[in-house]
Amino acid sequence: MDFQGIHDRLRACNAPGLLGIDLPRGPDPKDKKDKGRAGDPFVLVEPSKLASFLTVCRDDERLSFEMLIDLSAVDPAKEDPNFWVVVSLLSVQRKHRLQIKCVLPKSQASLPSTVPVYRASQWHERECAEMFGIRFEGHPDPRNILLPDDWVGHPMRKDYEFPKEYHGISCE
């Protein structure tokens, strides 16, 4: 199925939290500053309903997204008030992909864990949590995965300040 077909199907089965779509587009001829957007089409999903949205994607017969390929986050800019949580799904049976995006306010960066739906997200969520400081409520094992346990700060945030030293070792 192509993206339009997937989106229609999601509408048809009332996927919870589906907010809209973000399609690539050409530059706007009226607005000189607008350069358009290249790349993949995304579906926008409400963060609090991401887990139930993924359940529909996995269980619906015509979508049948068996696999969660990737889950990560983006901090678009220092001034931006939001994070994006981006999920990539893959269906082996139907041979299609879907990119999902959740816009999450930085002031309240928390959303329900998706581990009950796909166990693949367990490590991705741990990485996302330590790198961006996003909380995944109900995660079974919320420890750091790549960083040491005593690491201060969330390195992938754009406002992250590099440490001057670590355990007495100078980093400069």
Partner: peptide
């Protein structure tokens, strides 16, 4: 301007870049 996910078949599985 844009965002894209591309995954290819590496020897160990799908290597994706977003």
């Amino acid at each position: 301007v844009g965002e894209v996910y591309v995954g290819i078949e590496n020897p160990r599985g799908e290597l994706g870049h977003y």
